[in-house]
Design a binder for these strands. Structure first.
Lengths: 260, 260
DNA sequence: AAATAATTGTATATGGTGCATACAGTATAG
DNA sequence: CTATACTGTATGCACCATATACAATTATTT
């Protein structure tokens, strides 16, 4: 139709339906009644429910009824629940990405990236409940790959190494995103009347983890380091910073080796 | 009863039922008919089903009927499905752990640890489908914490730093375990008649990822590095090794700093 | 040896899930 | 103005985890 149609429809159709929607590849039809619903509204509603009540509260019927429609009406817009989940993550990955080339070094910029990832996962605790179905293939998700790649642009790394590095960094973000989300959840749950749950398993572990069976773990459990009984949120933050700095150190060392 | 009863029943009862079972804290009752079923058999059956057909095939009724019992009979042995999942991971974490103090350095030993973790996750692809419910609290799972701690024993790190390091390493294992499992799955699915799925999304992404919107990602997608179109399993292995070496480098740098 | 109490596996039921299908209504294109 | 394509809906299916009530079984206590 439009002149610049160099598109290979076939390969685009190979994308999951959710991805096709995210890329705006699904042409709105002209015939028939105009839909009162829309993919955007559905995803928005689903994200809202997930934010408020967790991912398990997101069922097709729940989303539909929250919009005042029947369950099945959603399937006019979305092929499966998996597609909805994909679109939820995509919607939430629409975050501002800093401009290129400020005066900051790559370490600083990678820290910002990781921070942004973690912030995203904490703002939407359900984020990491959605399993990774594969390599990112939707626009905003790919922005989240392009961003760190841009940061690495001028480093003396091969393209494979750059991808490896991004995988390393984003994997670390995700892993800690999970941990921090769980911590947030625990704290929320810990605010319950049963506040003694601070120790919870700490005391039990102190009885079960013997120096004979767990020689290296024992002193750590005994000292309360394992269960972090002091309830100090800072500890987890320290863990996180420590690991990140080790990773950045490792990258820096590799880069400096490559330079010589 | 037995003389050495210094146990605080209360705190042990605070453990989830699955953990109590794993630690052998649930006394078998004497009264009543002896059970034909057992927790061990149930978990074994569940693991078998998961290995063969994936975690989604593991339902209470499926497990029960595979053993020739009714669904509800399982609940005589296990309180909830969550407990079953916990016991499944626990069962599978029962792997041989190398003796202490061989001539190997800590880097080498940590590599072995990570390899073992990955091997575990590939042998049981459902492993990472089970969400982490919290810090490990079951015997074999704790062995998987004690092991790397042992490796770090003689390094000049505080206990907090050691825990942070273990978290870093095991988090990396888990992240890559997920990736490799997904890769295995894709290869298995790719063996289907529709074998052209080798490219799958690669071709589509090459159309969608423009140099304007994705300046840093574009060359990588264009070169086929992003989707690893060559189907070479070695690439992912390279990614993995690269990241691991960066992490080990980072730890080494930190240690050498601490030494001075 | 008899009574008691605990524990077994089962049958049935509840309220949920994602989704297939068939359908009546409605707006557009020819 | 008819054919077509699309809308939202209603119904139903197979499945899920789990609660409850129950008859059968067996070890301990009396």
């Amino acid at each position: 139709m439009s002149g610049d149609d160099t598109r290979d429809e076939g390969s685009l159709n190979s994308l999951p339906h959710g991805a096709q929607l995210a890329w705006g590849l699904v042409k709105p039809s002209t015939r028939g009644p105009k839909g009162e619903l829309s993919v955007g509204k559905i995803v928005e509603a689903a994200v809202g429910i997930a934010d408020r009540e967790g991912l398990s509260a997101v069922s097709m019927s729940r989303v539909a009824s929250s919009l005042g429609f029947t369950t099945m009406s959603l399937y006019r817009y979305i092929k499966s629940k998996d597609d909805l989940l994909m679109l939820m993550t995509e919607a939430v990955c629409d975050i501002p990405i800093p401009e290129e080339s400020e005066g900051k070094g790559w370490r600083e910029q990678l820290r910002e990236y990781v921070e942004a990832c973690i912030r995203l996962m904490r703002a939407h605790p359900w984020f990491t409940d959605i399993p990774i179905m594969g390599v990112p293939i939707t626009p905003n998700n790919l922005k989240m790959v392009d961003w760190p790649l841009r940061i690495l642009r001028d480093l003396p790394l091969s393209e494979y190494e750059k991808m490896s590095t991004v995988l390393l960094i984003s994997g670390y973000s995700r892993f800690y995103g999970v941990i921090m989300r769980d911590m947030d959840r625990a704290i929320e749950a810990g605010a319950n009347p049963d506040s003694f749950s601070g120790l919870m398993y700490g005391e039990a572990l102190r009885q079960l983890v013997t120096p004979e069976s767990y020689p290296a773990l024992y002193p750590i459990v005994a000292a309360g380091v394992y269960t972090e009984d002091d309830g100090n949120k800072g500890e987890a933050q320290d863990d996180f910073d420590f690991g990140l700095e080790r990773i950045l150190d490792g990258i820096e060392l590799h880069v400096s080796r490559a330079r010589t």
